[in-house]
Simulated assay, not measured.
Amino acid sequence: MVERRPWLNLLSHAVLLLGVAVVAFPVYLTFVAASHTTEAIVQAPMPLLPGGHFWDSIVKALTGQISGPGSKAPVAQMMQVSLISALIIAIAKIAISLLSAFAIVYFRFPFKMFFFWAIFVTLMLPVEVRISPTYKVVSDLGMLNSYAGLTIPLIASATATFLFRQFFLTVPDELVEAARIDGAGPMRFFKDVLVPLSSTSIAALFVIQFIYGWNQYLWPLLVTTDEKMYPIVLGIQRMISGGDAANEWNLVMATALLAMLPPALVVIGMQKWFVKGLVDSEK
C-alpha cells in the first residue's frame, strides 16, 4: 500500500509548477513583446507587463505591414506554405510507410529482408548528411521554390515503416485467413482490416510528423529563395536583419506566437489519440 505524505505531494506540485514556469516564461515574454511597440521593447529594462498593441501587431504581421530591413512577406502566406508542407509531409509519410510495411510483412519476394534493412539503415542518414546530393537532384529537376521541392525529399520515413511493420507482425494470422475465406484481396484486407486497426498509431505518427514538417528550417533555407515560398520558421529568421533597433521586434514576436499556434492546436485536438497511440498495448 502506498503511503500518502502531504509534504511529498506539496514537493511534487512545487516541482511541476517550477517546470511549467520555466517552459511558459519565454512564451509569456514573447506575448509581452508582441503587445508593445518596438521602441518600448529595445529600452532597458524591457517591460514585463502586457501593453495595448497586441492585436495591432498581429494584424500587421499577418498582412505584411513590415517596415524593417528583413523579409516583408505576409505571415498569413508563410503560415499557408508551412501548413500545406506539413500536411503533405505527414500524410505522405504515413501512406508510404503503411504500404511499405504491408509489403514487407505480407508479401514474399526476393531480397525482402535486404530491402527492409536498407530502409532501416537510412535512420543513420538524416537530411543533413545527404543534403548536398538531394539539393542537386531537386535543383536539376526544377523543383526549387515549389511545394514539391519542400516536401518530396522529406516524405520517406524509416521510423514509421519500422513501427508499422512491428505492429503488423502482431496481427493474428486468423484475421488474414478469415479475410481470405471471405474473398478479400490484399488491398481490401489492407484497407478494411489493417488501416482501422492502425488508427491510433496513425494518429500518433500524424502529430509527430506534422510538427516535424511544420518546424523544418534547414531544408527550406536551401530550396527557397522566393519570399512567396518561405515557411513560417524560415520567415521568422528572414525578418531579423541588422541591429536590435532596426528590427520590428513586436512583429517578430507576434509572428513567433502565430508559428506556435497550429502545432499546439494539433497536439491539443489529437491529444487523446496521440497518447493512446503511444501507450495502448491493445492497439
Rank of each mutant, 00 (worst) to 15 (best):
Phe31Leu: 15
Gly19Gln: 08
Glu174Trp: 00
Asn247Cys: 09
Phe189Ala: 09
Phe31Thr: 08
Gln166His: 04
Leu234Asn: 08
Ala245Phe: 11
Leu141Phe: 13
Thr161Lys: 05
Lys60Ile: 03
Ala40Asp: 15
Phe107Val: 08
Ile208Thr: 12
Ala203Glu: 00
Val22Ser: 05
Ala256Leu: 10
Ile58Pro: 02
Ala148Lys: 03
Val23Cys: 13
Ser67Pro: 01
Leu29Val: 11
Ser241Pro: 01
Gly19Val: 11
Met253Lys: 08
Arg108Cys: 01
Pro263Tyr: 10
Ile66Asn: 06
Asn9Gln: 06
Tyr230Gly: 05
Gly235Lys: 01
Ala179Tyr: 04
Thr122Phe: 09
Leu175Asp: 02
Phe107Ile: 07
Phe109Gln: 03
Ile58Gln: 03
Ile84Gly: 00
Pro220Trp: 01
Tyr106Asp: 08
Leu169Gly: 03
Gln209His: 14
Glu39Trp: 03
Ala34Phe: 05
Ile232Val: 15
Asp182Tyr: 04
Ile268Ala: 15
Lys60Cys: 07
Met124Ser: 13
Ile96Thr: 05
Leu49Ser: 13
Asn145Met: 04
Thr200Glu: 14
Val121Tyr: 13
Phe206Thr: 03
Ala204Pro: 01
Ser85Val: 09
Trp7Val: 10
Leu163Ser: 11
Pro26Gln: 10
Leu18Cys: 14
Leu98Asn: 06
Leu278Phe: 08
Phe109Ser: 01
Thr151Met: 10
Gly243Thr: 14
Met79Trp: 06
Phe111Gln: 12
Ala92Ile: 02
Leu87Val: 15
Thr159Pro: 00
Lys136Phe: 11
Ala245Val: 15
Lys93Gly: 01
Leu234Trp: 11
Met124Cys: 08
Gly52Tyr: 07
Gly68Met: 07
Ser67Leu: 08
Ser281Asp: 03
Lys191Gly: 09
Arg130Val: 15
Ser199Arg: 15
Glu282Asn: 13
Val23Leu: 15
